[in-house]
Design a protein around this nucleic acid. Structure first.
Lengths: 234, 234
DNA sequence: GATTATTAGTGACTGTAATCACATATTTTT
DNA sequence: AAAAATATGTGATTACAGTCACTAATAATC
């Protein structure tokens, strides 16, 4: 059934496009046209979508799942820069300039993505100036995130840094339950350490300390219950 | 003399516009039109162009001089995020979103800027899609810088961090002389410390150490001679 | 379901940078 | 040019996070 398959592909594409802020201002007709240009790919947990040094030829939009973006420091430690999830896009920096990828993006779970080739992307930007504005806006948000991370990396007191991380995650991933806020950590202890730029052992110790103080409760490796959110805010 | 004053204003505006990559793709006629929309302002050393929390209504382009962008960490320390100089622009993130300024921009010397109002900027973006692409490109560069800083902040070894800073400055501000590379530091010791996220005393000590090792020579507070660049690269 | 691999917690020890305190230089102001 | 303000260098001490080494727990694989 050609109609069915076409409808299905259309439907799948629409799904992807509707999740992404940069396509929001488009009308039905334009969306349909652009949907035709989009390719789909799936990744297993732990696979790299692209690696530091790669030459990219498309912009990638996450449709399902999450991924970490990291680069290696001079010491050889993995420094996590971003966590990307549903609706986030990346690779746009490499489409316009000649730069190769400055970081590696690796999935944290099974991930579905939509990709749009460099040529199509550039044509779209010229055709829909609104989209360019949306992207500038989105990049503003991304920079805001990065500046926030930098600010917190500049904090010398590691307790403060872990507290802000927990509060950030609480806002993003937390669900209110009777006893407090239950949150599903997107990263392992090592991941958290690589995000904060501290040793894995330090993260373990600080979390143990918080548990001793009755501020959090460790539910499982990847899940924490925040009992006293106010204490984290100081 | 109206012609003269007009020519002069035109000339001044042209100066400003020619320094800025985002206006580079425009033809003469368009440049002339846009030049009319640009306002000029001067700042003394130490003045703030805008402050964390301000509501901005224009994009600012530096025409002459330099400035630092910083925000305060939770501990009350000043964390420097960027150094802006001739040709750099900022404030574009706040024009499209409702966000207020997330950092303060303070001049490091006398500074001349050109400003373009929010309304004009948005109209230009819709009118010249090329310009949007230029800005996306430029933001990509800015993010690249920030990611680089983050990476280096994640380095635990402070010697390494100071070494990279000196190498960065050497590339940006250094001039080759007989004995090595002479560089005019854009920041004081305290500024360097606030950029690296370490104590002022630590910067002093590390630089003294480098001087004892014969790798650098302190010429004056704001000027350093790098004698052995290779040693800094390890 | 057993085995292997990965991830996490904890003690002991060490190194390094922060802090405090002050002397000295340098820059700015008057 | 003198005075005031600011910036820098350095010693002594302390605190705190890193490293190493190991055990325990959890997840992945066969």
């Amino acid at each position: 059934m050609p109609e069915n398959s076409q409808q299905c592909s259309h439907c799948k594409n629409k799904l992807c496009m509707h999740k992404v802020p940069i396509f929001n201002n488009l009308n039905h007709e334009d969306m349909f046209k652009i949907a035709e240009l989009i390719q789909h790919k799936n990744y297993k947990k732990g696979e790299s979508i692209f690696s530091q040094g790669d030459n990219l030829d498309s912009i990638v939009i996450i449709n399902e799942g999450s991924a970490k973006a990291y680069k290696y420091t001079q010491e050889g430690r993995e420094q996590i820069l971003y966590l990307f999830s549903e609706g986030d896009f990346f690779g746009e920096q490499y489409l316009l300039s000649k730069r190769t990828a400055t970081y590696t993006v690796q999935t944290l779970e099974a991930v579905k993505v939509c990709t749009l080739s460099k040529e199509h992307f550039q044509k779209l930007l010229l055709q829909y100036p609104d989209m360019g504005i949306k992207i500038i806006e989105e990049l503003g948000t991304r920079m805001f995130r990065l500046e926030h991370v930098m600010e917190s990396m500049g904090v010398r007191n590691i307790d403060l840094r872990i507290h802000s991380l927990l509060l950030d995650y609480s806002a993003k991933y937390g669900k209110k339950v009777a006893e407090g806020v239950l949150l599903q950590l997107p990263l392992s202890r090592e991941g958290i350490a690589n995000y904060l730029g501290v040793a894995r052992e330090t993260v373990s110790r600080k979390l143990s300390q918080l548990e001793n103080d009755g501020i959090i409760r460790s539910v499982s490796n990847k899940s924490i219950l925040i009992l006293n959110e106010v204490a984290l805010e100081e």
